[in-house]
């Protein structure tokens, strides 16, 4: 039979663990709300930007069959691929990090046959994992996600855009957790550059031709387009960073919620066990006293 004191110590330690996990859950929940707000605030901006791009693309395709190819949409022969992997800085968030890393590895193996893979790692966990492997790492960044700072994300995005323009890499892909809802994340691999406008086309078809062609463009079509495409690309990077951050918080919240539930369960079992042992000891003591008294009476 287990020692009473042993159980008491265990109960105390499980209790304090539960307190920590439930506090972490609360913290993640509030961070998650912030991140979700960020996503919600970005959505109208991103949608309108897409809408404008759709109008312009409609015009360019109907007018001059897209003579000017934007430098960001250029499809080159793919020799170097940059993979941007979004992980968290901290653990304790369920399978969040390992899923991203796994799918990044799978992607690397896929590409490796045809092209040279380079990595850029956002978040400490990914960097710690990949620095021990032999894939070339171009750089890593820790703080993109912990602050949902727009300006910082923009400078990051511009760095990648410059890499693409200068020809250091011919294609950029991002591996990250897409935020579905607080409990569900989905690891996706998306093409970042060259910029493809497939997603825009479907909306563009709804626009009426006469209306589109009547719109005045200032300074001119090409300049507006050259301004809007980089904007869209930057917005995309910001969206991905936000998505990954929100997913991380969601994953951590779920993991910590489960941990708290488990701790409560363990605590319940331990308390029952403790009471049983205590009861048994008392019964044992009473039996001893009674039988002792019996012995004296005889």
């Amino acid at each position: 039979m287990a020692n009473l004191k042993e159980i008491r110590v265990r109960i105390a330690s499980v209790k304090s663990t539960r307190q920590i996990t439930s506090a972490m859950k609360m913290v993640s929940a509030s961070k998650l709300r912030k991140a979700q707000n960020g996503i919600l605030n970005l959505r109208p901006y991103a949608q309108k930007l897409q809408h404008l791009l759709a109008i312009l693309q409609h015009r360019t395709t109907s007018a001059n069959q897209g003579e000017n190819i934007n430098p960001f949409s250029q499809n080159r022969e793919v020799k170097n691929i940059l993979l941007i992997v979004f992980t968290a800085n901290k653990g304790l968030c369920g399978p969040f990090n390992s899923f991203v890393i796994k799918s990044a590895i799978r992607r690397i193996e896929e590409i490796d046959k045809t092209a040279n893979v380079k990595l850029f790692l956002v978040g400490k966990k990914g960097f710690e994992f990949f620095k021990k492997r032999d894939t070339e790492i171009l750089g890593h960044e820790l703080d993109v996600l912990s602050s949902d700072n727009y300006k910082y994300c923009i400078t990051m995005a511009e760095r990648f855009m410059n890499m693409f323009i200068s020809g250091d890499v011919d294609q950029i892909e991002m591996v990250y957790n897409k935020f579905k809802n607080p409990a569900v994340q989905e690891v996706v691999c998306e093409q970042f550059l060259p910029f493809s406008n497939n997603s825009v086309d479907s909306k563009g078809k709804k626009l009426r031709e006469e209306e589109v062609n009547d719109i005045i463009l200032e300074p001119n079509e090409i300049e507006v387009l050259n301004e809007l495409i980089p904007k869209t690309i930057r917005t995309m990077f910001y969206r991905v960073a936000l998505d990954s951050f929100a997913s991380e918080q969601g994953a951590r919240m779920t993991a910590m919620h489960k941990a708290t539930d488990n701790a409560t369960e363990v605590l319940k079992d331990l308390t029952i066990k403790y009471n049983k042992v205590r009861q048994a000891t008392i019964t044992g003591e009473i039996v001893e006293i009674v039988s002792g008294a019996e012995a004296l009476n005889q």
Binding site: I216, E218, E223, V224
Partner: peptide, 14 residues
């Protein structure tokens, strides 16, 4: 700098 008043023609400007 420019101004937009009621019934402005459709425009997209930087």
């Amino acid at each position: 700098s420019f101004e937009i008043l009621n019934n402005h023609a459709p425009i997209i400007a930087l």
